[in-house]
Design a protein around this nucleic acid. Sequence first.
DNA 1: AGAATCATGTAAGGGGTTACATGATTCG
DNA 2: CGAATCATGTAACCCCTTACATGATTCT
Lengths: 184, 184
Amino acid sequence: MPGRSASSLELALLGFVYGEPRHGYDIYRELSDPEGLRAVWRIKQSQLYALLARLEETGYLTSTLMPQGGRPPRKVFRLTPEGEAAYQDWIRRPVEHGRQFRLEFLTKLFFARREGSAIVETLIDRQRSACQVWLEEQRGLMDEASAARPFLHLVHRYRAGQVEAMLGWLDACADTITHLAGPA
Amino acid sequence: MPGRSASSLELALLGFVYGEPRHGYDIYRELSDPEGLRAVWRIKQSQLYALLARLEETGYLTSTLMPQGGRPPRKVFRLTPEGEAAYQDWIRRPVEHGRQFRLEFLTKLFFARREGSAIVETLIDRQRSACQVWLEEQRGLMDEASAARPFLHLVHRYRAGQVEAMLGWLDACADTITHLAGPA
DNA sequence: AGAATCATGTAAGGGGTTACATGATTCG
DNA sequence: CGAATCATGTAACCCCTTACATGATTCT
């Protein structure tokens, strides 16, 4: 049953199914809402169907066909226990690289809100720790390059600046937390 | 001859060939140098050969085989007039999206240094203008979302913060310019 | 009556990675 | 004498995008 392992953003889709079973087209409409995740994650309809199929193949989702006369039957997905566990883990785990922040961390945050402020705080705290490690790394590399290799120095300085901005934003995030979070 | 159009990072490779003809393996070694571009752009050997082939197909490079007994002959590439023009344009053109900054802008800067401080200044100035536009956009979107849609607000605030960090870094860059630039 | 929506996908292609292939030569 | 280097690539696979396919139903 577990044919393959799910890549990280794939798991985000589990958030749509979490709580109530949903069919693909239904998720597609929610993803198209400009007030929702669309500002962060733009996924094509065909890609959505492909990812759902893969999550089923992986064993995180099961589907049942709901016929409805005339139209093609809805393929309604629900979480398996493995899927539920994977989602609960995903939503608490910070991203490992700065390049995942923009897309994946914001998506985690989007779903974490529904789980209440405790989860949001956990996520933000852990991400902050991770960012601090990155920052130290880049600062170390800056020193290493120093004036002798000015280009390398600038490269690491750039990255350090981006991470600093992430940290500042995480602080702002933590302040807004009460507004962001759903039911505690 | 012009079979296809070159994607943007592809053009970066022209920088290696600019000035003196080079063969693939030679470029590969330079790309592997940790003190050089490797800190920014990591490209696999097979991918390098594929890109060079594509640039030739596009008409930006021509190659001549240099036999050398025993070993496979070196395929030495040189810029065509179109390639030269494309490179000169590429090196002056700022990147259009924030997501291209980390990889592509830094690569432009890497090569621009060799062209002298005037080119570097041009590039930085234009990129600064572009970033300022992005920043205004994001700030506008922040206001639009305001307190009513806190998640959207945070998303745009995140992006604004990243762009602010880019602008700060560009200023630092401009200051270091004399160290960075090659012969004026 | 014609357009958009509902609901599922498949096919083709672009771009990248990993792994493999080849065969001489120089280094330790 | 074995390992790394020189120098070129090809093949298989993954992921995503764009475009196309289907066919009823509801909106204007």
